[in-house]
Design a binder for these strands. Structure first.
Lengths: 247, 247
DNA sequence: GTTTGTCCTTGATCTGGATCAAGCGAGCCC
DNA sequence: GGGCTCGCTTGATCCAGATCAAGGACAAAC
């Protein structure tokens, strides 16, 4: 079963993603080597909480592998996920030492952390670091705005299809033992976390997954393993314009 | 009738907000005077479209006065507002020359514009400009995430109350001819635009406004002029934690 | 093997907000 | 003045998704 990574190329330089995506513009510079001196790794198990909203957070970090979620909770317990961090995404806000959201590991997770103070020094003294971080933040803002369209105006089925296509774009491998190449990936979230992502209940998520399965848009192998026979068909269910353009 | 500006102090240096909020960290530097050379003003009437999603956009801008909205539209016409720009907010994305969203003036509007190329040069050569823009973008991302909670999990009534409190925070004056000080402001959006902001229909917006009026949470003088007798009471309707903290 | 717990599915019913429909009031144009 | 249109309100009905409820699959603990 030949597989290859799609859509987002693997990180290919050094062992720490922040060098590639967050800090170096093109990974050509040596001047950031002292980042090595302030970085360290942390590992979390699926389900673990990394910080609670309001907690002191003395580091920023880059996701090495696994998935983390940012979630807001209302007093009565209603929850809305507001960020989903995949490998190479950045966690934490420079110049703010308290977490604004609950951060949890939704799968086993490794973070590459940087102590806050030296990172902020770096930011202040290395122009292209803040420029790179600005680019990343603008990308996140665009993603947040797509997400707002989803939350405000899409139907439950469209929400599920959109979510699957987002995860597929960043995570899926192409399974080519057939001829056309199916997309294959594991869901990094429970049904409940998907509900929090999509502004639905877990029952509705479950029902709509069953619906997409019944209609042949996806196959479900176990609870978490997804096969997408034809990405085009899935995209038709998202309500988005035809040309997502990645594949 | 004595009034004073609350929550967001008026801009107080030079005539162009970008000098204060977007560009200068503390408005202490002179090195940005050449911004003067690349800036120009544009005026729009309420309802006018500034750019359509996908259009070439050869400038970035700062809102001087009035309100602009960023909106996404699905093929079948469903619309979701994804950004609301008030005075001193920034419009446009550096290093991207096509608009990602429809931009419309929801009131009469004046923009202070900067041609793209020189602004990008400035960004590349003036570290604290990109640092300041990073701060602003992070603030916008936080606002977007609050908005996601609203869209995904709040009831119609909570959405309306939240919206009113957001506008009041940025726009209201305190009317002190009573003793405690009522908050007073004009809605910068039609009911339809509010619906697009909140992920509701305009009928639901109208009904919930009537509901808040009936219950004495707000007074409505005409269609657009709002009086909030007691901000605390309004906040209790938003579903948010008690301590918004601004007043 | 049984028990327990977590995650998920499915069914029955309810309801908040959407949809469909009518009408109002305040400009504004002739 | 009369007839517009535009923005808004209100009423009647409908339905997608929430809620309430039961049970299944699977893994870990004993």
């Amino acid at each position: 079963m030949a597989q290859r990574q799609v859509a987002f190329p693997q990180l290919d330089c050094a062992d720490c993603p922040i060098r590639h995506r967050a800090v170096c513009a093109r990974c050509e510079s040596d001047e950031l080597d002292h980042l090595e001196a302030i970085k360290y790794y942390r590992n979390y198990e699926a389900g673990q909480t990394i910080v609670w909203a309001g907690d002191k957070m003395d580091f920023v970090a880059s996701v090495v592998h696994g998935v983390a979620a940012l979630t807001q909770t209302m007093e009565d317990g209603r929850r809305q996920m507001v960020g989903l961090l995949l490998p190479s995404d950045f966690l934490g806000r420079p110049n703010r030492d308290r977490a604004s959201y609950d951060v949890t590991a939704t799968t086993d997770l490794q973070l590459c952390c940087f102590r806050r103070a030296p990172f902020q020094d770096l930011l202040a003294n290395t122009p292209h670091v803040s420029q790179r971080l600005l680019e990343m933040t603008l990308d996140e803002l665009d993603a947040a705005r797509e997400w707002m369209l989803l939350l405000g105006r899409k139907t439950a089925r469209e929400k599920i299809a959109s979510f699957l296509s987002i995860i597929a774009r960043r995570d899926a491998t192409i399974n080519q033992h057939g001829h056309k190449g199916e997309l294959v990936f594991d869901l990094p979230l429970t049904r409940e976390a998907m509900a929090d992502y999509l502004g639905l209940t877990l029952e509705t998520v479950s029902r709509q997954m069953s619906g997409l399965k019944r209609d042949g848009v996806i196959r479900l192998e176990g609870k978490r393993h997804i096969v997408i026979p034809d990405f085009e068909t899935l995209m038709n269910e998202t309500g988005d314009d035809a040309d997502g353009g990645v594949f």
